[in-house]
């Protein structure tokens, strides 16, 4: 990893009521990468101050707008700061900081414009059978609707070149943005590769994650965005 890549890579973390986990997530990333942006999505706890103390630049949504909205805010800010590579990362501690290098590598080598982390090519820790099933169903759906051959469509760990990030326009504010991103990447004809990453589920991240019913709402939101907007 060259110094130039490190200096121009910005990591965007959308966070909502994440004061318990965000400090460790930011500290772990800051040890390896200089630019970490946390978008505090209208948290009612100390997420913003914990993130700043841990070394992140913090943008704050005055009211909660959803993960998709927060990602777009962070990506826009990163681009304004001159990012050449934008990485998205989850706030609940389920991703590992060392995987960012794996994600950035195909871009640095000029092989890809968009890199998606896949837990199904990589590995997981403590993932429930139901969660696995739900994620596979969501991925099958995304493959069908976007035509993109992905193995894990709903993984928050992604990397974009500046050009690819500039063309993103996340309009689905809540959780359906994951499918939306894959759709847009497919439409824009960006070169997309998947790399194996590790996802660790903790009781904490499970509690913060989607439930089966939530997944149904995500589906409705996505369909709305795709056909009725």
């Amino acid at each position: 990893m060259t110094g130039v890549v490190k200096d121009t890579t910005f990591i965007v973390i959308p966070a909502f009521n994440e004061e318990r986990a965000i400090g460790a997530v930011v500290a772990e990333l800051k040890a390896l990468w200089p630019h970490v942006i946390v978008v505090d999505d209208g948290s009612r706890d100390e997420t913003a101050s914990v993130a700043r103390q841990s070394g992140a630049t913090v943008l704050r949504h005055a009211v909660n707008r959803g993960q998709g909205a927060a990602l777009q805010t962070g990506i826009t800010h990163a681009l304004r700061r001159g990012a050449q590579i934008v990485v998205t990362f989850d706030s609940d501690g389920q991703h590992r900081a060392e995987d960012v290098a794996t994600l950035v590598a195909p871009i640095e080598e000029g092989r890809a414009d968009v890199v998606l982390g896949s837990r199904f090519l990589g590995s997981t820790e403590n993932m429930s059978a139901l969660r696995g099933l739900l994620l596979r169903a969501a991925t099958a759906f995304t493959r069908m609707t976007s035509g993109a051959r992905v193995t894990d469509a709903h993984n928050g760990l992604r990397a974009f070149t500046r050009a690819a990030a500039s063309r993103l326009e996340i309009r689905l504010d809540r959780m359906a943005h994951a499918s939306e991103i894959v759709d847009q990447v497919a439409v824009h004809g960006a070169r997309c590769v998947e790399v194996p990453v590790h996802v660790r589920y903790t009781d904490y991240s499970k509690r913060k994650g989607q439930t089966g019913l939530g997944a149904f709402r995500v589906l409705l939101d996505y369909l709305w965005g795709r056909w009725l907007r």
Partner: peptide, 12 residues
């Protein structure tokens, strides 16, 4: 909300 957030980034 995004516009407001982008106008006021808080450095570490």
């Amino acid at each position: 909300v995004r516009e407001l957030a982008l106008r006021n980034p808080k450095e570490p």
